[in-house]
């Protein structure tokens, strides 16, 4: 190495150390890169050609991303909720409630709501999507009103909502086996150049919008203000109740979108099992991504990294052949490790 190169190397190290100690997003991003490299190595290079290896690697990644698109979208809404200092435990239950509505509206059988009034095909699908998103908004609003008007702590309000939403859904859906029209499956399964990547596209789009909202809009910045110092926010002319109401409503809408993606992926939904533990996965992704449970600090980009880290981890555990029942232990360790990693020394 020449003198110049050594110098450059030193500069890089200083820059790296500085970024590492000041930016939580940076350390998370590095952690993600390290895991992706590890995963790549574990996948192996035992292929005839580079092309073959690349195809296999890409397919593996598309699978990972597609499988995690719904929880990733839910985690984005969760991030906003947590940034206000709240929590939304009802996302899994909202998922089955909105999923159930999707299937009931679209059912091609005798009990299909839209079918029975003569609306079928793409118009029915369009109406369903709009109706389901509105329904998700309403369910979220219900929580929002309970939290803001009823002054019920978010943990309690959403815990209650979680039980109510799932139980009511299961009751009304018992014994019925709605089937959705095959066109509907196109929403998630449409192939683009041989790749089934529609869910990934929805995820990226929504993440981009959420990123913009969090950085540039009054709503996005007010979320930080409310989460950081609610009293000061109110005394600065921010409608704190409106901001809180909106994050729950928005979370409900994003869950509805996730439900539509999930139903259109496989054409059905298990109302007892789907979305169970989803709230924990979403919270974990947000926390790994640097969002503070105390509110006031959070990163949309961090949540995207968080989802990726957890999915790569799942993939790795799978590749290593770790027994399924042990996998959550690793997930738990990663969540705690991520928070430890971000715990920056306080400067006086």
């Amino acid at each position: 190495m020449t003198e110049k190169n050594i110098n450059r190397f030193h500069q890089f190290i200083t820059w790296f150390k500085d970024r590492w100690s000041t930016s939580p997003l940076f350390s998370i991003f590095i952690a993600l890169i390290v895991m992706v490299i590890l995963q790549t190595i574990v996948l192996g290079f035992d292929y005839n050609s580079f092309g073959e290896w690349f195809t296999s690697w890409t397919n593996n990644w598309i699978n990972i991303l597609r499988n995690n698109a719904s929880v990733a979208i839910v985690a984005l809404g969760m991030t906003f909720v947590i940034m206000t200092g709240g929590i939304d435990l009802a996302v899994g239950a909202t998922l089955v409630a909105t999923g159930a509505l999707t299937m009931t509206l679209l059912d091609v059988g005798a009990s299909g709501l839209l079918g029975s009034i003569g609306i079928t095909g793409w118009p029915a699908i369009l109406i369903t999507i709009i109706a389901v998103i509105i329904f998700g908004y309403l369910l979220g609003s219900l929580i929002g009103v309970t939290v803001t008007r009823g002054m019920v702590p978010p943990f309690i309000a959403t815990l209650g909502a979680m039980m109510v939403f799932r139980s009511v859904t299961q009751h009304f859906m018992q014994g019925s086996a709605p089937r959705v029209p095959s066109e509907f499956l196109q929403i998630s399964n449409l192939q683009i150049g041989n790749y089934m990547i529609m869910p990934i596209i929805y995820w990226i789009l929504i993440a981009a919008i959420m990123y913009y909202i969090s950085k540039r809009t009054t709503f996005g910045r007010q979320i930080i203000a409310v989460g950081s110092n609610e009293r000061a926010a109110r005394l600065s002319g921010i409608n704190v109740k409106q901001v809180k109401f909106r994050v729950y409503a928005l979370s409900g809408m994003l869950v509805a979108i996730a439900a539509i993606i999930q139903v259109s992926r496989i054409g059905s939904m298990d109302f007892a099992g789907s979305g169970r533990g989803m709230e924990m996965d979403a919270i974990a992704a947000a926390v790994v991504g640097g969002t503070s449970m105390m509110g006031g600090r959070g990163f949309i980009l961090g949540t995207v990294y968080g989802v990726l880290i957890i999915s790569v981890l799942n993939n790795l555990l799978n590749l290593f052949g770790v027994p399924p029942l042990l996998r959550d232990a690793f997930k738990g360790i990663i969540v705690i490790a991520a928070v430890l990693l971000q715990r920056k020394e306080k400067t006086s």
Partner: peptide
Amino acid sequence: NAIIKDMDILENSAI
């Protein structure tokens, strides 16, 4: 009552 510590100077002045 006034300072929002998670926001920068500009945001605190503009909120």
